[in-house]
Amino acid sequence: MLEIKNLHAHVEGNEILRGIDLTVKPGEVHAIMGPNGSGKSTLSYVLAGKEDYEITEGSISYNGEDMLELGADERAAAGMFLAFQYPIEIPGVATMTFLKTALNAQRRSRGLEDLPTPEFMKLVKEKSKDLNVSPEMLRRPLNVGFSGGEKKRAEILQMALLEPTLCVLDETDSGLDIDALRIVSEGVNKLRDPSRGMIVITHYQRLLDHIVPDFVHVLSKGKIVKSGGKELALELEANGYADYVGEEAA
């Protein structure tokens, strides 16, 4: 279970997160919506352990462990996964090498042996088929020359391989056409599980037609200003964020 309490985060002297409280239990899917600049991506980076942010107050605990004490790789080993809004291209790192290194690093941190290469290959083949990730894509350097949709599918493939217990999806719908959105959403839904929590960060409601959340939170100016069920997303779609932004400004 993830517990975020009164989380404040600064970057270069600016306070971006101003007291976030959020609890995500296994099996729950939480959507976080909000206007641009509300701190959505910052929240995802802070959860994943990016070092550019200074945490001035509050805590993040996951399964009882203080996440703020852990580096990004240790958080991943603890079961957290961030699907990036802009997956990064790394020329010179072969996709397959990367996947294998990541999977085995996580296995080792959990006291497991490395997965033998034939089994690894089989696993990748199986998971990539569902996500329409071609063998040709897997032969390329990591994310290099991938289209926007390919990058997002590759992120979900990584998620499916690493089997995290907490998935944070940062604007996974951005840059996707209808077909790609459907493939990615199906990939995510397949990973919904009573033992797995998810945080779906999005600007638009349309992703939530595909990945139906249990809870919806509105983030504005670094705070959660409203929480509700999935119907809240529809309300936002109809009325926009103005109400919440205004409220905060008043």
Partner: peptide, 29 residues
């Protein structure tokens, strides 16, 4: 590049190994 390093670490690759991967990637070209 710290962003590349973060991406690798966010997938569970320990920092030292991630750095080696990036050095190798830089030289591989």
């Amino acid at each position: 590049d710290e962003d590349l390093l973060f991406y690798l670490r966010a997938r569970g690759i320990p920092e030292a190994e991630a750095r080696k991967m990036l050095v190798l990637a830089f030289l591989a070209e």
